[in-house]
Design a protein around this nucleic acid. Structure first.
Length: 841
DNA sequence: AGCACGCCGACT
DNA sequence: GTCGGCGTGCTC
């Protein structure tokens, strides 16, 4: 009896349980939001399921369930979930944990991470619409309407719905709300929210022979008899049978053929539809992938060289003790082939692999190479892909279709659950860091955390490691494998310095060109060889230099070049705010020939056209590669030899292998190294090394000419002798003595306000608070950033430098946040926005 | 982020 | 008055 009662009680109790879920909503507000679960969904809810919720007065968002519990909120009434979108979670629990890590490490909200992580095809949002109230006819005449209201009602009677924008345009009114409010009161209109369309799977129409005929030859014979005089229909049937003969298996028939295929070659759709009507054929739809391609792929198309095999086994050995291994291989050493073998090994074990690439155009080349090896097993996740394609990759990972994904930065958020290997190619690339919008995450660093959570290994590959990475490798935190020989017979390019100081004295410079470079170019062009000219567009900030000794004024505190500010005629350090008046004579040699080095131009191409009128030139930069295929067409033309001189920005420094390029010219080297940033030397080393890799592959040695006034400096010597280690050793000393990464963590804090005086005093106030909290020497600034006003908002920036060892960085972050909340609570500083950028680049 | 509310100043 | 422009507060 007691058991019976217990049972009754239990079921009774069961029915009354009310579930609440904490939902991650894609908004930049800290925390999750608690919703109540309607009973109909009580059994189906799971952590990671997408739900539709109303957030705020009207907005509808897709959120994900982060937690399920039975505690009703105390201070407010929870809204109900509007809908549960799925019975199987789109986001797994490992991902949710990872999202939380990203949010907390990069000081963003979980909603922002969620927003960055999910392709928009998986996130429906609503839009507000207005419609006529359908039951309004009767008392209509009694109501008086204003002119605007009449206009709107008339328009609504012609359209079944109108968006706010449309109404605003119609009424020529910015604030339509008063009008709507009045009409709602008069019960003439209704507002409603409509969810924007979501992911659409791609479908194809197919045709198959009805099973009635397929297995039955006599039935088929009869069918032909009945079609005796219907030649058109016979034709269709015959064509089908040539594609799928009667004796092919059942399943082959069931998979049918494409309707479009059957209809090609003057077969009329109407005869086919008659046959479908008569149940000879069956029409059906099949969901297909947007990624099917006809690339013939072969499992293995190459053999590793001895060096590559050695490197590969060294990597595998290191993986047994290290989670992260750096593969430092010079350009052309054949890293990709090693990646491919490592990937194949993991895929053979049924594990997942992620291959991260920087967000640059080189992806096309690597992706097509990987597709040739892995065919349709590989999911490609790239910004040029549509939302639908992104959703397909997402779902393909869940379904197990894609074990291997090649993707850019945001691919780290994909629903992996069994990763064994993450490859971060071109590990030093700055595009792994997202700057805007929040979350300001670094995909390389996050990938290491992701791998740790999934028990996977990380392989960082590059020819020019980021200093931080190399530091970790030398210290044994990461393993390291180095490949210092080019694949095959290829040799490294030969560097030459075109000394601008010297040529300037001898008055041999034409425009931006040294005679040295021009002579080399002429020789190459005469031989029908190709030239790449590299001009870095970064570093537009002007600085001061002495024409006689090439001295550039430096900041006393920061080891960066001072930036020239014209309006105040001062030199400023944009790191610590130090400033001084512009000196009349050079502080190093006393010469009066101090000059500002002004803004670089894109006039190189014009100059070339004047100097070499017969040469065909092409520019490759942001402006000439706007559209989706322009990049590829520039490359194609260059590859075919239709272009002689390719002039470009960093874009030309990446992965392009052209056999006929024998000369690379580097411009603006000085501006690169004098860019006011503690990483300017590192960047210069990386860029010049990368771009030099474009010169001479295969059998002929290429040449790189660097135009510079800094001939003989250690940095330049390290670059031209391909000596990364020496570069590293001198740079790391600077980093340590000036308290920069990898010894110190950096957090950049940006304060924003429409009011210049408000940011000014708010940043000073905040700076004071932080200095009191962390100590004077750990806080830099506040100072005006180089671009001090963005979209009418004035900016100030502060840097927090915290030593890596013995400091709990999460406590530091919490304190930064608390102090910033305190600051903006002050009525004076209400309008100030505070932005945190952890590990800024 | 969006959205509504409320206050202020300009213009009819 | 009416309309547009912000600044401010709130979102489960």
């Amino acid at each position: 009896l007691s058991q019976l009662i217990f049972k009754e009680d239990a079921s009774d109790f069961q029915e009354r349980i009310t579930y609440f879920v904490d939902v991650i909503v894609p908004v930049p507000i800290p925390g999750t939001f608690t919703y109540r679960v309607p009973n109909i969904h009580a059994d189906a809810i799971q952590i990671g399921c997408r739900v539709i919720v109303q957030f705020g007065r009207k907005k509808i968002y897709t959120g994900i369930i982060a937690n399920i519990h039975q505690r009703p909120p105390e201070n407010y009434r929870a809204k109900y979930i509007i809908d549960l979108l799925e019975n199987e979670p789109s986001v797994n629990q490992k991902q949710i944990a990872f999202f939380y890590w990203v949010a907390s490490y990069y000081m963003s909200t979980i909603g922002e991470v969620f927003n960055a992580a999910l392709p928009s095809g998986l996130k429906l949002t609503s839009e507000s619409f207005v419609q006529l109230n359908p039951n309004l006819d009767d008392s209509q005449d009694a109501i008086e309407y204003s002119e605007r209201e009449k206009l709107l009602l008339e328009s609504l009677s012609n359209n079944d719905k109108m968006s706010y924008d449309e109404i605003s345009n119609l009424l020529e009114l910015k604030q339509i709300h008063p009008v709507l409010k009045s009409l709602i009161q008069k019960e003439s209109i209704l507002l409603f929210e409509q969810v924007k369309d979501k992911f659409q799977p791609k479908k194809v129409k197919k045709i198959k022979l009805s099973c009635r005929y397929f297995n039955d030859e006599s039935a088929l014979e009869k069918l032909f008899e009945s079609l005796e005089k219907k030649f058109k229909q016979q034709e269709v049937l015959l064509k089908y049978l040539t594609k799928i003969p009667i004796d092919s298996g059942r399943s082959i028939n069931d998979s049918g053929i494409l309707k479009s295929e059957l209809l090609s070659e003057n077969i009329s759709p109407s005869s086919l539809s008659t046959l479908i009507k008569n149940e000879v054929f069956e029409a059906f739809e099949e969901q297909v992938s947007r990624f099917e391609s006809n690339i013939n792929f072969k499992k293995k198309v190459f053999a590793l060289s001895e060096n590559q095999l050695e490197a590969k086994s060294a990597i595998k050995d290191l993986f047994s003790e290290k989670e992260v291994v750096l593969l430092h291989g010079i350009t052309g050493s054949g890293k990709t082939e090693i990646y491919i073998e490592l990937i194949q090994e993991q895929l053979a074990l049924g594990k997942q692999v992620l291959y991260l690439l920087p967000e640059i155009a080189l992806t096309t080349q690597i992706v097509s190479r990987l597709m040739k090896v892995f065919g349709n097993e590989v999911g490609v996740f790239h910004s040029k892909h549509s939302d639908n394609e992104r959703v397909e990759v997402w779902q393909g990972i869940i379904s197990g279709k894609f074990k291997f994904v090649v993707g850019v930065r945001s691919a780290i958020f994909l629903p992996f659950n069994d990763l064994a290997l993450i490859i971060v190619d071109e590990e030093h690339e700055s595009s792994y860091k997202q700057y805007d919008p929040s979350p300001r995450y670094n995909a390389r660093d996050s990938a290491i955390v992701l791998a740790h959570e999934q028990g996977a290994k990380v392989l960082l590959g590059t020819a020019t490691p980021a200093l931080d990475t190399y530091y970790n490798a030398l210290n044994g935190k990461y393993g390291m494998v180095e490949m210092m020989e080019r694949y095959g017979n290829a040799t490294l390019p030969k560097f030459e310095i075109a000394d601008m100081l010297d040529e300037r004295k001898k008055k041999k410079i034409k425009g931006d060109f040294t005679s040295h470079l021009l002579d080399e170019m002429e020789a190459r062009l005469d031989k029908g060889e190709q030239v790449i000219l590299f001009q870095n567009r970064r570093g537009y900030s002007p600085y001061l230099t002495c024409n006689d000794c090439n001295h550039v004024p430096q900041c006393e505190n920061c080891s960066v070049s001072l930036t020239y500010h014209m309006y105040s005629d001062t030199l400023k350090c944009h790191y610590c705010g130090f400033q001084e008046a512009v000196p009349q004579i050079c502080t190093a040699c006393g010469s009066a020939a101090v000059k500002t080095v002004g803004f670089g131009t894109e006039k190189l191409e014009e100059d070339i056209k004047l100097i070499f009128p017969q040469a065909k030139t092409q520019r490759m930069d942001q402006d000439t590669t706007r559209s989706k295929y322009s990049y590829q067409s520039i490359i194609d033309r260059f590859e075919k030899g239709e272009t002689d001189v390719l002039i470009g920005t960093q874009m030309v420094s990446k992965g392009l292998d052209f056999d006929k390029v024998t000369l690379v010219g580097v411009f603006d080297f000085d501006r690169m190294i004098h860019f006011p940033d503690f990483r300017s030397h590192e960047r210069a080393f990386q860029l010049v090394t990368q771009v030099s890799g474009r010169a001479g592959r295969k059998n002929n040695q290429g040449k790189v000419v660097i135009q510079t006034a800094s001939a003989g400096t250690p940095l330049l010597n390290n670059i031209i002798s391909h000596d990364y280690l020496s570069f590293y050793q001198s740079e790391i000393i600077e980093r340590e003595s000036f308290h920069y990464p990898p010894f110190y963590r950096l957090i950049k804090i940006i304060l924003k306000s429409k009011d210049k005086d408000v940011v000014e005093s708010a940043s000073i106030q905040y700076g004071k608070t932080l200095k009191a909290e962390f100590g004077e020497q750990r806080i830099l600034g506040p100072q005006e950033p180089m671009i001090s006003r963005i979209r009418n908002a004035y900016l100030r920036e502060l840097f927090v430098k915290i030593e890596k060892s013995d400091v709990d960085i999460s406590k530091v972050k919490k304190l930064l946040l608390d102090k910033s909340n305190q600051l903006t609570k002050d009525a004076k500083y209400k309008s100030v926005r505070v932005i945190f950028d952890v590990d800024p680049l």
